[in-house]
Simulated assay, not measured.
Amino acid sequence: MRIQRALNVSALLAAVALPALAFAQTVDPNPETSVAQAVTAKADAATPVPRGLDGKPDLSGFWRPVRTPGKPGGNMGKDEPNFDLPYSEQGRRARLYSQNHTVDPEAVCILGGIPRHNASGLAFEVLHTPQRLATLYNYNTHRWVTIGENQTFPAKLEPSYFGTGLAHWEGETLVIETRGLRDSSKDKIWLDENGDPTSDQTTVVERWTRSAYNQLRLQMTITDLKYYTRPFKFDRTWQLADPGTGAGEYACNENNLDAEHIGPGAGVIGPDGNRGFGYDAPLPAEPPGPEAYDVKQ
């Protein structure tokens, strides 16, 4: 009787599970999807976008980023002219210092945070209810935001890597506004993989749309008038991964046994907009030290 009751409960849970949610059994072997793969993948045109109890699109699923030919990976400036963000003078100095003198925070197990995780080349998983949205990342970290109308930010926000995010629906699009982020001048945090700076004045607005059953789109606007002269946008698309794949375990501390020898810096940004050592171009002129951030360190 107990066994039968357990089987009945298991069957009930399976029956009410959201159809878009692929429970992870194995680590996804292909973290990125090429444009060609995305085009030739099953369009799922006949499969409707799943919806939650509130009637809104359910964003749940394990999502792989789609690579865009000719665009750099991990660079928030991928859609800007020459892949260059609109730096203020202070922002340009801070960027040069970060690239050449500071170790990538993620290389020493520090959270990438928002907006950096939205530019990652790694897949991520979404768990979505009408009141809450959680994003689970391969670094064994996560963030969650509350969903509801007429929410307001607290008068004082404690800075954090993922900040405080409040979400609401605009039609079929989930809009998330995030404030209360950390500052590169005081904390080990980068805007993106290129070592670009981010500040405690940064506001990130994300617009998430499940445009098809197997497609998730992001339109993101970043505003930080400390390090940049104007707001800028970052758009990208993810493809729904195969059933049975999902985020696997990643013990950062166990993969970080030689952290003291990592570095120095992100390396020179090449003509393709990606960072890394080995480019023939000489190092750009750089500030003499941490005063690039105009703070005492």
Rank of each mutant, 00 (worst) to 15 (best):
L13H: 01
A14W: 04
A15S: 08
L18V: 08
L18I: 05
A20M: 01
F23Y: 11
A24L: 11
Q25I: 11
V27N: 10
E32L: 00
A36W: 00
Q37L: 00
T40S: 03
A41E: 01
D44I: 00
D44N: 10
A46I: 04
P50I: 05
P50M: 10
L53Y: 08
K56Q: 13
P57R: 13
D58W: 09
F62H: 15
G70M: 08
K71P: 01
G73A: 09
D79N: 12
N82D: 15
S88C: 11
A94I: 02
G112E: 12
G113Y: 10
G113L: 12
I114W: 03
P115L: 09
R116T: 02
L122H: 05
T129P: 13
L133W: 03
A134V: 14
A134P: 04
T135L: 11
N140G: 11
T141M: 10
H142D: 13
E149A: 15
Q151I: 15
K156P: 08
K156G: 07
P159T: 09
Y161L: 01
T164W: 09
G171T: 13
L174Q: 02
V175L: 09
E177L: 04
T178W: 15
G180R: 14
I189S: 07
G195S: 05
T198K: 12
D200E: 13
E206G: 02
R207W: 11
R210I: 07
A212S: 10
N214R: 09
Q215E: 13
M220W: 07
I222L: 14
I222C: 08
T223G: 14
Y227G: 09
T229G: 15
P231Q: 13
D235I: 08
D235K: 10
R236Y: 08
T237P: 02
A241E: 02
D242P: 01
E249Q: 08
C252P: 07
E254A: 14
D258F: 06
I262S: 03
G263H: 01
P264V: 04
P264N: 04
A266M: 06
A266G: 11
I269W: 03
G276L: 00
F277T: 04
F277G: 00
Y279M: 06
L283Q: 14
L283K: 12
E286F: 01
P288C: 03
P290H: 03
V295W: 04
